[in-house]
Design a binder for these strands. Sequence first.
DNA 1: TCAGTTAGTGAACAAGTGTGCACATATTAG
DNA 2: CTAATATGTGCACACTTGTTCACTAACTGA
Lengths: 212, 212
Amino acid sequence: MAPRKPKPRNDRKSRTRQALLDAALKLVADNHSFGSLSLREVTREVGVVPAAFYRHFRDMEELGLELVEESFRNLRELLRTARAAPFPDERIVRQSVDVFLSAARENRLYFEFVGRERFGGTSLIRSAIQKEIRLIVSELATDLGRFAPPGRWTTEDLQMLAGLMVNAMVAVIEQYLDAGARPSAEAEIRKNAEKQLRLIVLGAMQWKSSGS
Amino acid sequence: MAPRKPKPRNDRKSRTRQALLDAALKLVADNHSFGSLSLREVTREVGVVPAAFYRHFRDMEELGLELVEESFRNLRELLRTARAAPFPDERIVRQSVDVFLSAARENRLYFEFVGRERFGGTSLIRSAIQKEIRLIVSELATDLGRFAPPGRWTTEDLQMLAGLMVNAMVAVIEQYLDAGARPSAEAEIRKNAEKQLRLIVLGAMQWKSSGS
DNA sequence: TCAGTTAGTGAACAAGTGTGCACATATTAG
DNA sequence: CTAATATGTGCACACTTGTTCACTAACTGA
């Protein structure tokens, strides 16, 4: 049987594709890991027949990789604006934590997806995510290099510092997401995050390069 | 048909149960996440009929929780021996990194399982893991309290410091596991880990409690 | 207007899944 | 030695899964 309701085929070119992505994202956040999410569940959520999936993606994996890209497109956009910043003193620490936490709040589903698949997913998806994160670390490292007294910081050490910072923030975000966004927990987590960053900055100011 | 080979039913009480656990562990490390691992795959790997599974576990989830417990039983044992240690100076940093990395090498499968399910798994398994990690952080915090000049460190701040350290080490271990244990990468990772810990210690020595 | 392409349908398939049940065998207790 | 209890077998059931196929409806550009 042909479809009875002509389904106005809205303005945009192909909304179903985006609907599939959104549905997958929602289902991953709701229930289980992406790996144990079936093609049929996704199409069912969208309200479309399973075969229609193949008009947009070859695979569930292809959809997953697309989700990774979407996630980091948002995040990188955000970091680019936040990167025009002064020397990392007290204020910048507080601001940075704010930026990350509010980003996590607004793009919760994307962050949850990335958090789940960072280590849990298929190896293709895993390495895609790792690559993106390494890129963020590198960008932060060159940024930090601008404020560092030249000579005291090797490129390697800057990477190390950036890695430490990013790891701390990632851990904070995952802690925040796991807390179900209870506002009471958020205040606690925010305070903790600021302290951790402050301590790292403190250590960095005392740092002397790898010798000894 | 009844089984032809009597299957000598070796010494121990019930080896099948452990075989199921081991098989699940191996399959998770090899292929996919625990969530997308079927009961039948596990029994097939052991060489036993699916229904036999129910003689030992009600669920796959129950088996998963058991795996979490096994994993941390090992790890906590290890940490208890390593905890009798002097003030965290240069040597102890190097030793700590060694302890963690060699633990990750020897118990690779367990670490891989925990890494995958920490955020990827069912919510029951997730929270079981988080609880264990929080416990480790707390134990480390009280340990650190012994070396801290009293008054300068509140309990809260000690928890913060311990959390930072554990996070860093967890990140290092996951990095190590992802590198497939290539020895060239291991040296790099080890050096990086030592630097990160050194920087944290440096920051801690400069720390003054939360007031600005 | 009319041909061509795109997006979605519905039915079918082989394969894999969790779970229940009656039965067979091993192991252990009395 | 015998009876009782774990432990494992075989088979069945109803479902869900991914993928294919010919089909039609809708949109597109000339």
